[in-house]
């Protein structure tokens, strides 16, 4: 029997899960697409984590479950999480566990991007994109589709370019028009793709890094960190070394698993069932008509039994209980 902690990071595009041991080592991990169905994605992640443990002949004793990412409350409620935390904290903790001397974390995910500034092992400042998703993974994937390049090859193609095209990238939609224009006047595909990577970086720096000093050591993570074209653009733009961990996409999940370990100081074993695959969960969204706020409420049912309700602004909308 081994004491284990589970961390799940459910993002807009991808769902990540890890299991760590007492020494914070990742002993199982999974990464797959959320595909707009977080519950199903988490079921698959949990199953895959269990299969990995089985193949390693590890019999787990679960002592903590943490959830983070945009679906953290929904999934936290379904898994019976011991801790639910925002992704900024989770990313910082996860990264610091591997790189204690980190000063700057660049994070670009599917639909949001973050910048976390660390001093002496503590988050001292952060920024998160607001109002606009330009400079995120969503922009890259839509442009990759338009150019007929597989998103996973985007970085490789970009790095072939010697002369990246300049693209006006303040707004995703206008960037697209500019991109079409550049293609029509004869810029090569490599140059345009390298230009897109650069645009993402410039956009990120303009949106988040204004007035902030980015000091070494700089860690780049989130799904987009897998794109070597963007990594290179960051290096060129900042003129600094950029570190990308092989598990850079798992840092949020790792962080939340560590937090769940930290809050369980006595190492008490909790009740957790890996067979979540067979449990039927249902969510029902409805509008509360208690007042003209018309809150959109989501109720979660486990085997037809209401386990949680979220999204209401006042007591009127809650069925039985709320977690927050």
């Amino acid at each position: 029997m081994a004491k284990c902690y589970i961390g799940v990071d459910i993002g807009s595009i991808s769902t990540k899960g890890v299991i760590i041991d007492e020494d914070k080592n990742i002993i199982a991990s999974e990464y797959l697409w959320t595909e707009g169905d977080p519950i199903n994605a988490v079921k698959k992640v949990i199953k895959s984590l269990k299969d990995t443990l089985d193949s390693k002949m590890i019999v787990p004793e679960i002592c903590g479950i943490g959830t983070t990412g945009s679906a953290r409350y929904l999934i936290g409620s379904i898994l019976g999480a011991t801790i639910i935390k925002n992704e900024i904290t989770a990313h910082a903790i996860g990264t610091l566990s591997k790189y204690p001397d980190t000063r700057t974390i660049l994070e670009i995910g599917g639909q949001d991007s973050k910048l976390i500034i660390i001093k002496n092992g503590i988050v001292v400042d952060y920024a998160m994109n607001t109002l606009c998703a330009a400079g995120t993974g969503a922009f890259l994937s839509s442009q990759a589709k338009r150019l007929g390049v597989d998103i996973e090859d985007l970085g490789k193609v970009a790095n072939l370019s010697k002369n990246p095209t300049k693209i006006a990238a303040r707004c995703t939609v206008f960037a697209e028009s500019d991109l079409v224009h550049k293609a029509q006047i004869g810029h090569s595909k490599e140059d345009i793709i390298a230009g897109i990577c650069r645009a993402v970086v410039q956009n990120y720096l303009n949106n988040l890094a204004k007035g902030k000093k980015l000091e070494d050591k700089i860690i780049f993570q989130g799904g987009v960190s897998k794109n070597i074209g963007v990594v290179k653009a960051f290096k060129d733009e900042l003129n600094k070394e950029i570190y990308v961990d092989e598990n850079s996409h798992l840092m949020g999940a790792l962080g939340i698993a560590i937090i769940s370990k930290n809050i369980n100081k006595n190492g008490n074993v909790i009740d957790f069932n890996f067979d979540i695959q067979d449990i039927k969960f249902k969510t029902i969204g409805r509008q509360c008509n208690g007042c003209s706020n018309n809150c959109e409420i989501v109720s979660i049912y486990k085997e037809e039994k209401l386990i949680d309700t979220m999204g209401a602004r006042c007591e009127k909308g809650y069925g039985i209980k709320q977690i927050s």
Partner: peptide
């Protein structure tokens, strides 16, 4: 908004 507020709180608390 909630995410940012929570993160701000966590950051100060850890500090």
């Amino acid at each position: 908004f909630k995410t940012r507020l929570e993160a701000f709180y966590d950051m100060i608390k850890m500090n």
